Simulated assay, not measured.
Amino acid sequence: MEQERMARGKEEKRRVILEASLECISRHGYEATRLRDVSEVAGVSIGVIQHYFGTREQLLGEALGHASGALMEHFASLDPSLLSPWEELRGMIGVVCGMPSLHGRGLLWLEMSSLARRHPELRERLDSVYVLWDAHVRAAVGRGVQDGSLAIDSDAGSGSVDDLTAIFLAFFDGYEYEIASSLVPDDPALLERRAVLLAERLFRPVRA
């Protein structure tokens, strides 16, 4: 029991440090973030950070992986066997819109995209998030087409599943850029409402 409590405490401390690292990357950028910055935000000493993560590069690399991993874990929790295709799509929209700090997350993804040109390992992390996000949407839409709950008819000019999925994902990419650039409000409810409106037009759920 005591060992379990200590293990949970260590995992929680790691999580706090990783979240603090992401906040610092959003504020200062990857290149300018220092262990001292993370230490101040996390409320722990630099020695504690080094104990858990070693070098600055190891810490920030794990932090970026933590950011993408959290999103993927939420997607994985949406069980297709318990949800209709439309419910699954709505669930994915809710996950993306419900992540903390849209503005900070937008800045983080912009930073990751910029860094990916110089750091191949970050390119892999970024690509893995997009591929999995794309696969989840595509699977839900394909299931809806198959069972008739989504009224997509590519022969009637509504677009293929590939086309519609690409448009849907591009909406989030563009909207996060606009939030990060302060061109639109950092308003999760507004983003979710607009995302649902777009999804309804693209995927055309059949109402029971």
Rank of each mutant, 00 (worst) to 15 (best):
L122W: 14
D147F: 04
G61C: 00
A140G: 10
E73H: 10
E124W: 00
H66W: 15
M92N: 02
L71D: 03
G91A: 13
S77P: 07
F75N: 08
G69T: 06
R117M: 07
Q146L: 14
E121G: 00
L60P: 04
G94K: 07
R123I: 00
W133M: 08
D163H: 08
D147Y: 05
A63M: 05
S149R: 12
S114E: 15
D153E: 06
V137F: 02
A135Q: 12
R105Y: 09
R117N: 05
F75I: 09
P85D: 12
G144F: 08
G144R: 03
W109K: 04
E57K: 09
H74C: 10
V145M: 15
L115G: 01
Y130P: 00
R105D: 04
C97D: 07
L82H: 03
S154D: 12
S149T: 15
G104D: 06
E124N: 00
G148T: 11
R143I: 06
S158L: 08
A156K: 09
M112P: 02
G65M: 03
R143G: 10
L83Q: 13
L108T: 08
V129I: 12
R143P: 08
A156S: 13
G104P: 07
V161D: 07
A63R: 04
L110K: 13
R118Y: 13
D162M: 06
E73P: 01
R105P: 05
Y130R: 10
D127N: 14
L126G: 05
V95N: 05
S128M: 01
V161K: 03
L89N: 08
L122F: 12
A140D: 11
L132V: 01
G106N: 05
L150H: 06
F75K: 07
L150F: 07
S114V: 13
L108F: 05
G148Q: 08
Q146C: 04
A156P: 01
P120L: 01
G61I: 00
E88K: 15
S68F: 04
R105G: 14
A139C: 04
S158Y: 07
S68V: 15
Y130N: 01
